[in-house]
Amino acid sequence: MSIHFVPIGAVSEKVTTWNPAKQADGEFDYIDLSAVDQSEKRIIAPNRMPTVEAPSRARQIVRAGDVLVSTVRPNLNGVAKAVDEHDGMTASTGFCVLRPSQRQLDSNYLFQWVRSPSFVGDMVRKATGASYPAVSDRIIKESVIPLPPVHEQKRIAAILDKADQLRQKRRQTIALLDSLTQSIFLEMFGDPVSNPKGWPALKISDLEVDMTYGPRFYNEQYVDDGTRIVRITDLASTGELDYSAMPRLRVTDSELTEHRSRPGDILFARTGATVGKTALIRENDPLSIPGAYFIRMRFRSNVVPEFAWATIRYPSIQKIIFEGSRQSAQQNFSGPGLRRLPFILPPIDEQLRFAQSALRAQSFGSLPKAGADRLDALFSSLQHRAFSGQL
């Protein structure tokens, strides 16, 4: 089956713009880059603000069905589709807002395409800027999309949507098991911020902990048999890492020795919409190196890694991280803020008892996680087949 490719801009409509700051005594809903969850690919937290406080980037009027593609750090694939509740909101010019022409391009099909490895790889290759890689609206709109008839687009999108829904249901099961671990933590130790049980109250800076920023790899070519590099998009909200999707690089022995993750390490996402998410490296996890948007935390003998991980992920701690990160235009929460976080320190035997309970809860989740991994692999296969004319 031959595949017809056209530039995305040729099958998209013009988006209306405005300047909210010129409207007196009003409010508007603003979708900035941090409002898109890069792992879930959806708009999660638009900001309601007075028009007089509108950022200079607040310009594009969104309609339901629009597809938003972040123009910065295309490797993170910050994309989302606007639904009815987002109709009339204002998007940052940090997004390329794609409004598909209804007679030529299905919105769901376009959304699935901009999530595909083919589109992401194309944007990564065309991005410019070493420290802050970005693409322009022009580059996105000039990129091509395979374009079967609209009825075929709808069929393909429906299949991919269904597979994605199955993945989400599996992840919801994992999230429920994750909430069980949080309930165990609350029962044993209480809220680590209010500290109702009166444990020794410290800050992370008072503990013996090594913090290391992940390395940057410039202009390196991905390979099939190298070391896995952990990206922000490989980390789920439940702390699970998707090792199957990680790119691989060939690194030197010294780089591997210095930067590799070891069992018990905590990876802290320090920037973007995923700021504050963490992963705990476990005994049987594959060899990997956390990328530049992570801080690797390695606690010493007086803190059990499972306990530290649960503490940092606790809602009251996450609230501090969220509020602190939003003080800059690009959400960020780095080493100094991390060191100032409150931390309770129960006796080591209590921490170990919690770790054992958490591991038992984790074992309950091994089956749904295995199912989620299989569904991820199926979704990747369906994506490839869908956009190569084989579905």
Results as ranks from 00 to 15, higher is better:
residue 148 P to H: 14
residue 8 I to H: 00
residue 187 E to M: 02
residue 162 K to C: 02
residue 218 Y to W: 10
residue 219 N to R: 11
residue 90 T to L: 14
residue 308 A to K: 05
residue 165 Q to W: 06
residue 327 Q to A: 15
residue 267 L to S: 09
residue 142 E to K: 08
residue 383 Q to I: 08
residue 368 P to Q: 10
residue 306 E to H: 05
residue 189 F to L: 02
residue 179 S to Q: 11
residue 235 L to K: 01
residue 122 D to E: 15
residue 147 L to P: 00
residue 64 A to H: 11
residue 174 I to R: 00
residue 200 P to F: 04
residue 286 P to A: 06
residue 239 G to M: 02
residue 279 A to S: 09
residue 334 S to H: 07
residue 154 K to H: 05
residue 324 G to K: 10
residue 26 G to L: 13
residue 187 E to T: 12
residue 327 Q to N: 12
residue 329 A to F: 06
residue 150 V to Q: 15
residue 39 S to W: 14
residue 384 H to K: 05
residue 161 D to Y: 12
residue 117 P to R: 10
residue 151 H to T: 07
residue 144 V to H: 13
residue 120 V to N: 01
residue 287 L to F: 04
residue 19 N to R: 14
residue 223 V to H: 07
residue 358 A to M: 09
residue 68 L to D: 10
residue 378 L to W: 01
residue 86 H to S: 02
residue 144 V to P: 07
residue 102 Q to N: 15
residue 212 T to S: 09
residue 187 E to W: 04
residue 128 T to F: 04
residue 353 R to N: 13
residue 207 L to S: 12
residue 254 S to K: 10
residue 81 K to I: 10
residue 391 L to R: 04
residue 299 F to N: 04
residue 327 Q to K: 03
residue 135 V to K: 09
residue 73 R to E: 00
residue 302 N to S: 14
residue 214 G to V: 05
residue 362 Q to W: 06
residue 338 L to A: 05
residue 284 N to S: 10
residue 58 A to N: 05
residue 11 V to W: 12
residue 140 I to N: 00
residue 34 S to A: 10
residue 30 Y to H: 09
residue 327 Q to F: 13
residue 86 H to Q: 06
residue 363 S to T: 13
residue 164 D to T: 08
residue 339 R to C: 09
residue 38 Q to N: 11
residue 259 H to K: 10
